[in-house]
């Protein structure tokens, strides 16, 4: 399903704010945001530059390379600058910038043929790292086998696992973990139904579990020939 979807990087401004559970700010009562100066009077620079670090950090997390992240941040701002006149609710500018960046990343990987492919022979939906660890029992004398297994991984193993999964799964997963968005907010940001977000998060997590299992095999904690 995901592989056939097409989204343009032309971004329609959205109407939610991260952390509100998809609720429009104007729906809430007694919210101090309503007393703010009307954002429509602010310039592009005033609105967007305070989010420069956040956009850059998200770019690093998505592409894993600081030079590529700088280029991606620049490209995000260029697209945002061009689309700025169409931004209808400027209070959502942070989510809007994330939206532009996310779509750039996914579209660029698809069009450039750089998207990571998942081995179709693996039934990711049924893959369970918990079960594999229990079956293989890599640390027979451990009293907390699963905890010890996770504790063994180095930072670069975790980073490598996250970077090894397709962007179409990595983007929602990273946004969920770092921005703590609700499924509704993610759906708005990614321009897809909530069900698609749930499916991508599920497959993304399973892909990370599988990548960690492969890493455990490379490190010799479990036998190479295990599934």
């Amino acid at each position: 399903m995901d592989g056939r979807e097409h989204r343009s990087t032309t971004v329609e401004p959205q109407f939610f704010e991260p952390g509100t559970g998809g609720r429009s700010v104007t729906e809430s009562s007694g919210n101090s945001r309503q007393e703010c100066r009307p954002a429509e009077t602010a310039t592009f620079e005033e609105l967007t530059l305070p989010h420069l670090s956040a956009v850059y950090r998200l770019a690093v997390r998505l592409v894993g390379d600081v030079a590529a992240a700088e280029d991606l941040t620049q490209e995000t701002y260029l697209k945002a600058m061009q689309a700025f006149p169409a931004l209808r609710d400027q209070r959502r500018v942070r989510a809007w910038l994330f939206q532009i960046l996310s779509r750039l990343v996914v579209d660029r990987h698809r069009s450039g043929g750089r998207e990571v492919q998942i081995d179709e022979s693996i039934d990711l939906d049924r893959f369970s790292l918990y079960d594999r660890v229990a079956e293989e029992d890599p640390f027979p004398y451990s009293e907390s086998l699963h905890e010890d297994f996770l504790d063994r991984f180095h930072d670069e193993d975790i980073r490598g696992a996250l970077l090894s999964i397709p962007q179409v799964y990595r983007v929602p997963l990273v946004l969920l973990y770092t921005e703590e968005l609700s499924y509704r907010e993610l759906a708005d940001l990614l321009g897809c139904p909530v069900g698609t977000v749930m499916s991508r998060l599920h497959r993304g997590r399973k892909a990370v579990e599988h990548a960690l299992w492969q890493c455990a095999k490379r490190r010799g904690w479990v036998k190479e020939w295990t599934r």
Binding site: I158, L162, T178
Partner: peptide, 25 residues
């Protein structure tokens, strides 16, 4: 699963913006 989520979140939370990057951008 909760612990694995925590490990991933902690890894993603690390790292700020290196000096000079924001000025350069």
């Amino acid at each position: 699963n909760r612990r694995l989520d925590g490990v991933l979140k902690a890894r993603l939370a690390e790292g700020g913006v290196p000096d000079g990057v924001e000025d350069r951008l």
